[in-house]
Simulated scan of single mutants.
Amino acid sequence: MPIDATQPYDDSNIFAKILRGELPCNKVYEDEHALAFHDINPMAPVHILVIPKGGYVSWDDFSERASDAEIAGFTRAVGKVARDGAMVTQGYRLLANIGKRAGQEVGHLHVHIFGGQPLGPMLAK
């Protein structure tokens, strides 16, 4: 069910539980600012989620409240995961769904990294 990205951060969301170690994940990368792990319901041969370690609902929330170090660290983590996963040569797609109309399902900012096959058009009609 899509979430309302204008609401305050809810630390009972699934990604907050993963960050606290209450739920497992298939970790790909972790540093002080970000965690990357395989999506449990992959939509491409490579489907990795990258999340900031801070409690941010959306890109606009993150860009407004995160420190410069958090923003740089998260952005670098996304690039590192793509490079380390050998996705750069073949190409990959980044996707961040924000709010109800975009279909955001978890109230914690996250970026999907898709790769491993041709990905088709930008939007389905």
Rank of each mutant, 00 (worst) to 15 (best):
M1T: 09
M1E: 08
M1Q: 11
D4C: 08
Y9R: 01
D10H: 03
N13G: 00
F15Q: 06
F15G: 07
F15K: 06
A16I: 00
R20S: 05
R20Q: 08
G21H: 04
L23P: 05
P24G: 12
C25G: 08
C25L: 10
V28K: 13
E30L: 12
H33T: 05
A36F: 14
F37G: 06
D39Y: 06
I40L: 13
P42Y: 12
M43Y: 10
V46N: 11
L49S: 03
L49A: 05
V50I: 13
P52D: 13
K53I: 12
G55T: 02
G55N: 06
Y56V: 05
Y56A: 09
Y56M: 05
Y56F: 14
S58T: 10
W59E: 08
D61N: 14
S63N: 14
S63Y: 13
E64S: 15
E70G: 03
E70C: 02
T75S: 13
R76D: 06
V78H: 08
G79R: 13
K80S: 12
D84G: 08
D84N: 14
G85W: 00
A86D: 15
A86R: 13
R93Y: 00
L94W: 07
L95N: 02
R101D: 15
A102T: 02
G103E: 04
E105R: 15
V106R: 02
L109K: 06
I113T: 02
I113E: 04
P118Q: 05
L119Y: 01
G120P: 06
A124Y: 11
